[in-house]
Design a protein around this nucleic acid. Sequence first.
DNA 1: AGCACGCCGACT
DNA 2: GTCGGCGTGCTC
Length: 743
Amino acid sequence: MEQWILKVALDTPLHTVFDYRWRQASGEAPPEIGQLVMVSFGRRDTMGLIVELATHSELPPDKLKDALELRRQLPPLSRQWLDLCAFAADYYQRPLGEVALPGLPKNLRAIKPTALDKALKALDKTPKPVAVRKTRKKAKAAVLADNASASVAPCAESPEAMAAPVHAAGLAAEAEDSAHAPDSTEHASGSELYFGVAPQLNPAQQDAADAIAEARGFTPLLLYGVTGSGKTEVYLQAAARILLRDLDPASGKLPPAQILILVPEINLTPQLEGNIRARFPNLEVVSLHSGLAEGERTRGWLAAHTGQARIVLGTRLAILASLPHLKLIVIDEEHDPSYKQQEGLRYSARDLAVWRAHQLSIPVVLGSATPSLETWQHAQAGRYRRLELRQRAAAQAVLPKVRVLDMERDKPNDGLTSTLVAAMRKRLERGEQSLLFLNRRGYAPVLACDACGWISNCPRCTAFMVLHKPERRLRCHHCSLELYIPKGCPTCGNIDLQPLGRGTQRVEEGLAAIFPEARVLRIDADSTRLKGSAQSAFDSVHRGEVDILIGTQMVAKGHDFKRLTLVGVLNPDTALFSHDYRASERLFAQLMQVAGRAGRAGPSEEGNPSEVLIQTRYPHHPLYGAVTRHDYDGFAGTLLDERRQAFLPPFMYQALLRAEARELDIALAFLQDAAHCLEHGGITINEPIPMTMTRVANVERAQLLIECESRPALQSFLKDWMQILRQMKTRARWSLEVDPVDI
DNA sequence: AGCACGCCGACT
DNA sequence: GTCGGCGTGCTC
């Protein structure tokens, strides 16, 4: 009987791995790094991940517990995947277990392995790719199927396995195995079996697809293309070439390769997923996002982990999926803020994607019409290769004409200027669709009393309660508190309370009055609360059942509305004067994106071009000028100059220490202590300040900004600093965010 | 983070 | 007499 010490990572905030004893019965395979293991931890049983094997422990033997059970049926997670988690844990200053374990499907971590066993069995029986035609192709499909399922075997059984190196060897052997496909006399390419009919690329798209497909080694590429320029088609054709690279023309045997495509939102995946499935009819495509049911998620994750899934489409969480044969990563709309996780492990999926591509020496494509300044700066400096699509892909489609409407000259009624109303009326007459974009849900952001000056403050937050008229409630968007709309003013009894400002509900109400005959649909987080209702709302827009669409940023992204020829932007001005230096970058991207919803199919039948009308009180603001000219380059250049002069990212690296407590002083005192507890040459530690929204749900919050020109220097400081902070005694709750996005 | 233990206030 | 408040201490 042999005895092992397993070093196990657990999902706990404790920054350590835990030692467990494992007694290996004779004839039994040894444990392996990357295996999941059930252990007793404190008073409960939980799933851990073996990150290291040893023969003895530093701990006194009476403190060691026996591990309970190895999850042998699951092929171990690879060393590369563990390295990815370890990097993320290190970079974001979180324990390894907190990075590695929560991303795994719950079924893998369940105490009873029944669901896992079931999923593994189902995976084995997945309908194999079916050949479209008979004879030779059928044979190819069969070979493909064999190849796919074969990838499970070497790790799953691993009878000869001996700890870490063996697993890597297993993968290597597998790769080699597929390279040694049997020879044959036939020389057809076989690729048509896997890649459906694809549109002809225009020359710029072709160059981009070539550059991606021909890239060797770590190659970050920025695919910079205006909305509607056909970036997706470039991804798909490049993906096809990479998947089919080294396809054995004789056997039709597909080499093991996987492609990861990330998109910002779940909303957008069904449409894209359909396109991808149609294009790759005989390849397994899975999607990974938080909206999946547990069973689906387990199945998809396993298909990725075993290499069976060739294309994985997902949201940010998919960047932490196990993908043993990853050959290309695509980040669509790379500038999108939702790639940054905003709670728990605050990682940037885009940054991890670049790291992962570097680790694997593969290309990574960052696609956007309005790249993040970080990415743009990398491209300017030549670190990322820039690929450019200047024209819209649909032959006749041109960029919409953008105009700025001065609200001082053309006073709005019900929030709409007469010019915008006239433009909408024209669309109604022509049977075309209009989209109004207003990034503020609810009826009105505040309810106020004219008589005594009362306003609808949230009792628990430093924020207003928003009037929601259809629901007949006041709602706090920060703590979710809901109150009935008071009949009269709570302080003076005045019956006549006034809604101030305008949200989507109020605009919807106004539209009904102006255009009684029009079919108006509102799409925002409130109208799409129920599962599937967002999808059905978008479907009805696509079917032409809607004349006027009013919505928040939900409507700005990705959707391809064929009959939409007018976009109206209401009240974007607040972002112009925000204290967040990223606000204008975000507003510009948002305006370009929503503008891109118009005229994707080309000019209307009568040849009328599409229009984007922006209502503003600052018609001469340079940001709007840049949007009007569709001038990302110029605007980005200006912003980068400003950032360089102000010593802001991407020319500076930042981290944010946040603290919260029932009383602000406790949070501030902690930050004050933190600021002075360690020598920090070369690092700027700013003054602790209360957050703009000081109180949320009766908790007061403050923060401390740390800056450094050198990323490694910042990293090494943070590492030492966190160690000291963890030992500090405080009543404040605190957390660190590396590379914060909103400050 | 869980999940315990532990010592003080209002209820059947 | 008990239910339960959250302070503090530990987890291989």
